[in-house]
Design a protein around this nucleic acid. Sequence first.
RNA 1: GGGGGAAUGUCCCGAGCGGCAAAGGGGGCGGACUGUAAAUCCGCUGGCUAAGCCUUCGUAGGUUCGAGUCCUACUUCCCCCA
Length: 418
Amino acid sequence: MTGDFQPKSDFLRVLIERGFIHQCSDFAGVDEKALAGGLTAYIGFDCTATSLHVGSMLPIMMLRWLQKTGGKPIALMGGGTTRVGDPSGKDEARKLLSVEQIEANKDGIRQVFDKFLTFGDGPSDAIMIDNADWLTKLNYIDFLRDVGRHFSVNRMMSMDSVKMRLERDQELSFIEFNYMCLQAYDFVEINRRYGCTLQMGGSDQWGNIVTGIDLGRRMGAPQLYALTAPLLTTSSGAKMGKTASGAVWLNADMLSPYGYWQFWRNCEDGDVGRFLKLFTELPLDEVNRLGGLDGAELNEAKKILANEATALLHGRAAAESAAETARKTFEEGVLADDLPSVALPASEAIGMGVLSAFVRAGLVASTGEARRQIKGGGLRLNDAPVTDEKAALTAADFKDGVAKLSLGKKKHVLLRIE
RNA sequence: GGGGGAAUGUCCCGAGCGGCAAAGGGGGCGGACUGUAAAUCCGCUGGCUAAGCCUUCGUAGGUUCGAGUCCUACUUCCCCCA
């Protein structure tokens, strides 16, 4: 943790105050670099899915603060390392992804960064790089001679990610064992190419990052530094990022701004203050005031959290629209126009059985599930509980061509006649 | 190379004398209570044209009226010996 360290640089001060820091290899060293100006830092992002999810917001915000405090952020796409697969925190070997899949994922992930960082050629402009650029060109024998000889297997065996696998008698394949070597090499290579001296990441990356620092020292690079963020869990201990409909994706085509807004709005009471610090840029005294609210008043703070977090990712307009949709839906009980919707031709919609209607709306996965939800009182059509599973939609159910289907109290989908 | 063990509901863990849509738990979803929170309690958690039908226990065959359960081969994983 941060101990009694008193930072002089804006960069470290902000990160410490807002709770971004779990471990740092050398606070004074990083502070000095940041103070001198021109601190360049990078964070690597795996390309294992077509979109990042909320879990990645923490590192992204760190890059953003770095830029705001005068540093130069580098977003590293793991186009090369994803082909190998990071065993950290995994108790089972990850399936290898195809190269095409990785490239497609990379394209999806890229989109997000424009919203948080300013890219360009200036001294504190962000850049995006891909480690496939150098990793895929490595020659095995050269790599072993130039880089591999600096790695101590003895040390690697003592790292948590490796030790865990060994202790549990779970296989750790050679390719995975190499992951940390590649990530370590990345750090040295990025330092050589861009003068980057700091690598940041989640706390599970500590071992990999420190291995890079070590390699840098042995290969004659300047002093490198590590800075990690805490692993985010909700106050009841659950891993963050999962919700009703799966992961909380950052790309709008995978989770609507409204859905993203709802995610923050529904967070647990105990998380509000912490999340405001991490995921919004509200001044700290404001955050402290909001986080200190009691009971039902805290709901106002949750709305602000949702507004601010959504505005950062999807823009102010989308955030306001989501807030308005939520207000109409939950506070007025009025039908809000831009709830998620599904369009159907009239011929199909009128006379459609309720069961299939809910399946079409995507609220349930099968008619069987729809039947069960009806038994449990979980389905509503235009806010009236559905009781008869044989009922069919009639023209009267579509006011102005729109019928509102709900699952539970929170999930609503509009069925539109096109 | 030799010997021994394992694979179960496509979220996970995990029971299962030849009659099984298959115990139990976690997770998830829904209901009640609330504040769109947490905690608690209750229900649900293979598919369908649904009192019926269909598909499921690593893969492929076999024995049997009947196989998750027995036999054979194969695949993958683990353990012990070399």
